[in-house]
Design a protein around this nucleic acid. Structure first.
Lengths: 330, 330
DNA sequence: CTGAAAGCGCTTACAG
DNA sequence: CTGAAAGCGCTTACAG
């Protein structure tokens, strides 16, 4: 592989000049620029990224922190981020944290050492100090959705509470008289918001109390188990808001096993808008988040922050919408 | 951040000595080792990974080339790989190629520049030259499954043809009289193998001809569309082998819409063993590949190749098994 | 506009 | 067993 030295020698200039030309820094005679560029092409020279990182403390690398890529929400997000990253010549580190504090700190440490240019954070168990530490080390970050978002840096959120209200309201509108919720983990910001949205709509009904709330963990299996729990507690349940689509898919299975007709005897609405909800039987109504776009927007904002280190952070809150499908149409 | 210089100064030795101690290379008096290690701990010194890469031409980084992480097969694989990588302090570059030649070559180039230590390849549109080029540049690679596998380097495959036979044979055993297949893309090795497995079992029946083969692209949607095609061509079809699970999920939807009872009027078997097949209605029988394990094994082999550069490649062919579920039980 | 020189933080023959 | 020195391939003040 040709190095900057080879190019400099062949062009009869110093490596400094070549470096400047490559990076469009400082000035150079049109003639030297032309000559150097010709040699670069001739030699097929590519600047060594690692050497560059060492001096510049940049790496052309972005890290993506997610709980686990196995949850179908995150691949979609990752694609959005990666597609844009690619266009900018950035590579992506995939970091599965399982929302565990230990893995989070390990990653953060290792990413700092590698001079990553920025981090997209969509994992629990990071705190304000982590994010401040990143920024004071010159590593911009953006939190997405699930991440702790009371910091002063950039973030993208979705209107979880409003989405949950849309869902619950819809169930009421189609005539459900007893509506339960399968909520997500207690330490998860989005889960809490969605639960409040549900409560907003049902809290004034006589029948409502805590027992209509089942505690899931956002997995298909927990949706299944929680639904069984709800059936047992409330044989008269005729509507459920699953606070994510995976749990909706799980509860659909429970409904089939329990012999409840969906939507006639049990109406269902999920949350997220993952692809699979179109293909279940029946297809599941859901509150759609613009997942792919969120990945893309996060990357966009990160690139902006990298290029304008002292610019103001941006806080975005996105709308969601209700996608009507068979599981709730009656 | 403390550098190796700081450690050396404080310990009263040269940076060379510190380096040797960190890397367990050459020898050193127990006393110096102890002293240096104490200082390292005291200063919280961590070797700079980037500087290390520059001299060693290693990066503690592995790349994972997949068509797209949005297909639920790959996140599972990625987790397997990542979990092991993590244990070895390796980070993972996620590379979505969309099986496009252009993206593949871009990635390969950029990964070479970054001194990645190894590449797990599960993408189409790489050829023997690419892989040889990698190896001659000292970058070990391992191909998985879908990747072109006639090279002489390490690879992991699954018994696709045998799996397809298992699936088709099973459909015959449960009494299907007219069995179609939704096959995968023509340039995909696994798709071709699975098609042959199907043919092995049906080729001698009077009814069999090309029209029982529908050409899908491994997406849910194509499963759906292909099934409609088969229904139209062959109203008497009573069994289908979908050559991956996503297409099986799609065809299930078509069956519901067409009003065919599964499994009584139409028995279905998929391929892959992705999680979602447990949660469809009815649950889908499938040929299970050990996806997570394959990711893990690939990483294991890669680590072996990195540590023993001149060792022989290993070619592994894994067994698959038939998971019986409702979609084919009659 | 351009070059010499130092430096980024390591590693590794080579001597001793 | 240990150190001085060169080198990995770049970038960036500093001079001129």
């Amino acid at each position: 592989m040709a190095t900057i030295r080879d190019v400099a020698a062949k062009a009869g200039v110093s490596t400094a000049t070549v470096s400047r030309i490559i990076n469009n820094k400082g000035q150079a005679t049109p003639e030297t620029v032309a000559r150097v560029n010709a040699i670069i092409k001739e030699l097929g020279y590519k600047p060594n990224v690692v050497a560059r990182s060492l001096t510049s403390r940049k790496s052309n690398t972005i890290a993506l922190l997610v709980p686990t890529i196995s949850n179908p929400f995150f691949p979609e997000l990752a694609r959005g981020a990666e597609d844009l990253a690619n266009a900018y010549g950035l590579n992506i580190f995939l970091c599965n944290t399982d929302d565990e504090r230990g893995k989070v700190t390990n990653y953060l440490q290792s990413l700092k050492e590698r001079y990553v240019d920025g981090i997209i954070i969509n994992s629990l168990n990071l705190n304000n100090e982590d994010i401040e530490d990143l920024h004071s080390n010159g590593i911009p970050s953006i939190t997405l959705d699930r991440a702790f978002a009371t910091h002063e840096f950039s973030s993208i959120t979705v209107k979880h509470r409003e989405g949950a209200r849309l869902a619950t309201k819809h169930l009421i509108d189609v005539g459900c008289k007893r509506i339960g919720i399968i909520r997500g983990p207690e330490d998860d910001f989005t889960a809490v918001q969605r639960m409040w949205g549900y409560r907003d709509c049902v809290k004034d009904f006589d029948w409502f109390n805590q027992s209509w709330i089942a505690l899931g963990d956002f997995s298909v299996k927990s949706g299944y188990l929680c639904m069984k729990e709800l059936f047992q507690r409330h044989p008269d349940i005729d509507g459920v808001f699953a606070s994510n689509d995976l749990m909706a898919i799980g509860l659909l299975k429970a409904a089939h096993e329990w012999g409840r007709k969906v939507p006639d005897e049990l109406a269902i609405v999920g949350f997220d808008g993952i692809d699979m909800t179109q293909y279940t039987y029946p297809p599941i109504s859901t509150i759609r988040q613009p997942i792919y776009e969120m990945g893309k927007m996060a990357m966009e904002e990160l690139i902006r922050l990298i290029n304008e280190p002292n610019s103001d952070p941006s806080k975005v809150e996105l709308d969601v919408d209700l996608i009507l499908r068979e599981s709730s149409m009656r």
